[in-house]
Design a protein around this nucleic acid. Sequence first.
DNA 1: AAAAAAATCAACCGCCATTCA
DNA 2: CTGAATGGCGGTTGATTTTTT
Length: 238
Amino acid sequence: MVRTPSIDKNGIKRGAWSEKEDNKLRAYVERFGHPNWRQLPKYAGLMRCGKSCRLRWMNYLRPDLKKGKYSHEEEELIIKLHKELGNRWSAIAAKLPGRSDNDVKNHWHAHLKKRARLTNSNSSNMEQFTELSISGSQNEQSSYKVSEHEATDCNIREVPDHFDTPCPPEVSSSDLNGMDWMEEDNYMRSMEQFSIFSSLEPLPDSFSLTNPIDNFQTESFDHFWTQPFDNFWTQPFI
DNA sequence: AAAAAAATCAACCGCCATTCA
DNA sequence: CTGAATGGCGGTTGATTTTTT
């Protein structure tokens, strides 16, 4: 159900995400946040575009995501909200804690569209509606099993708190093929960066002091920008 | 048992709104 | 004001799985 992994002409990886990539992205976002999605993959050691990283996080890795079957209440709410808001999936998803817009949209097209249409066109015929609801539920038994299985396989909460990727990504000469000097420099730096932060569990205080995100939260903007960038090359990004 | 059809859902694409220099 | 960069959104695709024939 996922697209075959491939690498495009710019060296950007596409298609299904591997567990290793998920771990890198999760570790990075949980530690440093995501103030800039476009820059993130470079510093997280991912050969993905920022858009792809954002999508993966929002629709799959976010720790508050709810997996598995939709409750009857959730489905009724989606139908009601869709009637009010139309195809504004993000607005609808915002009312359903733990559900992403993509997930809600998929569920609508797969399960609810037909039901909503029937409810609208034949709202007086409750018998027919009930019958369709029951057959829908039977179909969903199988999809629920799949979801449950997938959730067990991929559930973030099942993975130990400290993800198991202590080793930095390997750098081979083939990785550098086709890169100009600047890309190569950035890539090598990101590898170094990754190896630094992933090998420290937990990070020492001295590192967190130079973490720009922490500084943004605790120091004034001016104070932050007047600090010397002693270890500029090993900071995540600014 | 095999083939065909339908269902599923993660991922991609293109567009638009916002921000910032 | 303008244009580039970025984030976010909705529509669509396509590989895989499940169901039906």
